[in-house]
């Protein structure tokens, strides 16, 4: 019947999303011409070149950063989400808005805030040295720690919202039943609460993990030369080195990793695409 309603969307996404992606896939098998352009001889050379320690390190670092970020967000976000979900209805709204405001605030601005705080002449050092706690400034900005702070700060709301939704659906009487059946605080949490809110935990972790893995702004602004993540590598290859075929290969490997995460999520949550 109204299939023609779908056609414009298919056309738009086909031309401006799938075609570019496909083009990129092809180019990832080409090579960089001597003067910048693209040499259309297809091979696996770019993917083979990725096996270099230098690049593997960057992928590895991205994975580690994304994992730590996810874990920290879960650790911080769970008590918050639990508290919101169990608060009286009118307070729930207030808390949720408070979580959402940073979520809707410009990402660059939120990252910049940490530059302002963490840099050598920044707020942290001004306060610490002003109080005489230290003689020399703490150097955090442009380190891995700064990147992690920025990532956790940036993506914490992504964790809290799905967690909240899952916990809110949790029937209080189920928890009470566990108490009634002699479960202690920890057993209630591990044996009853956690299994029931698992879908929310998985969704939240995925929503944090995926953007962290492909992060660009945070490592770019807060990280040093040694904190480069895959996102920065792609940008570097495209805009600085101008080796588009290699940059494309880097991106497709990243996409593969993301897809692995998504498929894992769908498996875990028992849904079908």
């Amino acid at each position: 019947m109204p299939d023609w309603l779908l056609a414009p969307t298919l056309l738009w996404m086909g031309v401006f999303f799938f075609a570019p992606l496909f083009l990129m896939l092809i180019i990832s098998f080409a090579s960089r011409g001597t003067y910048g352009g693209i040499e259309w001889t297809l091979s696996f050379a770019n993917y083979r070149a990725l096996a270099d320690t230098l690049y593997l390190q960057i992928y590895f670092r991205s994975l580690v950063f994304a994992t730590i970020t996810t874990a920290l967000c879960l650790l911080l976000g769970f008590p918050l989400a639990y508290h919101i979900a169990r608060a009286p209805a009118r307070w729930q709204g207030v808390w949720l808005i408070l979580v959402m405001i940073p979520f809707w605030t410009n990402f660059l601005v939120r990252t910049y805030a940490w530059i302002f705080i963490l840099r050598t002449e920044g707020l942290l050092n001004t306060v610490v040295m002003g109080l005489g706690l230290r003689q020399d400034p703490i150097e955090i900005l442009y380190t891995d720690a700064a990147v992690l702070i920025g990532l956790v700060y940036g993506y914490l709301p992504f964790m809290v919202l799905p967690l909240y939704a899952a916990i809110e659906r949790l029937d209080v009487s189920v928890v009470e039943a566990a108490w009634d059946l002699y479960a202690s605080g920890w057993s209630v949490f591990w044996r009853v609460v956690l299994p029931l809110v698992k879908p929310g935990v998985i969704a939240g972790c995925l929503l944090v993990f995926i953007p962290s893995l492909g992060a660009f702004i945070t490592p770019d602004l807060l990280g040093g030369a040694r904190s480069m993540m895959v996102g920065n590598l792609i940008q570097h290859e495209y805009l600085v080195i101008r080796d588009w075929p290699f940059g494309s290969a880097v991106a497709f490997v990243l996409m593969g990793m993301v897809m692995l995460g998504v498929v894992g999520y769908l498996k875990l949550s028992g849904r079908k695409m």
Binding site: F17, A19, L21, F216
Partner: peptide
């Protein structure tokens, strides 16, 4: 369902990738 799944891909793939893919496309 497959088409719907594919249409949601832009929400999942890294932003950087989407950016460079479009850059590549427009240049080519």
């Amino acid at each position: 369902r497959a088409i719907e799944g594919a249409l949601l891909l832009p929400l999942v793939i890294p932003e950087v990738m989407m950016g460079v893919a479009l850059l590549l496309f427009f240049v080519i």
